[in-house]
Write a protein that binds this DNA or RNA. Structure first.
Length: 175
DNA sequence: ACGATGATGAAC
DNA sequence: TTCATCATCGTA
């Protein structure tokens, strides 16, 4: 089983998409990697979400179709990879924080050579970046939910459990 | 614990 | 045009 995730998959609340992206495969020019860590930025009311400040040149991709790639540059050196979720003109997205073997949103984009070339483009084969369902089943007990990282400025939104991490298989639960 | 390093948005 | 800030990371 190998199905490319389509617009319909991303046309849902960011938290649902973030959770369901765990165990899916990110396909890039550097190969295929299972997604292991995500964060949801749920919309313009979310103080941690870039669209909280309104529509600007930077956040424009978030207002496009679900499944659009949103990439921004921060701290003068790191590219962050996001997928737009929900209806067109509703600015929400999911940050991809880690894949199997690569932990950290900045390390991930560096390792997979993802930069602004992919910004505001659709997640499709032609783009060179897309996501596949390869039939990996994730049980609820394999998912850790925590507050999001690096958003201490976000007031009451700071502690919302919008970060999803796929727990490592440790073998201890196997018979 | 801190500095790197530059785009971004808001203030002036 | 200037300034503070930043969904981070490597080194100490």
């Amino acid at each position: 089983m190998r199905k490319m995730l389509d617009k319909e998959f991303f046309d849902r609340p960011a938290t649902a998409v973030a959770k369901d992206l765990l165990g899916k495969y990110l396909i890039s020019p550097e190969g295929s990697h299972m997604i292991t860590e995500t964060e949801a930025y749920v919309g313009p009311q979310d103080k941690a979400c870039h669209s909280y400040k309104g529509r600007t040149a930077r956040t424009e991709p978030m207002y496009d179709e679900p499944g659009t790639i949103y990439i921004y540059f921060t701290y003068g050196m790191h590219y962050m990879l996001n997928f737009v979720t929900g209806a067109k003109d509703y600015p929400a997205a999911v940050l991809i924080r880690g894949v199997e073997g690569i932990v950290g949103p900045g390390r991930l984009t560096k390792a997979l050579q993802i930069d602004k070339r992919f910004n505001h483009r659709p997640l499709r084969r032609i783009t060179g970046l897309w996501v596949e369902d390869r039939g990996v089943i994730i049980r609820p007990r394999e998912v850790l939910r925590t507050p999001r990282i690096g958003i201490d400025y976000a007031g009451e939104w700071k502690d919302k459990p919008y970060r999803f991490v796929l727990k490592k298989k440790d073998g201890r639960s196997r018979p």
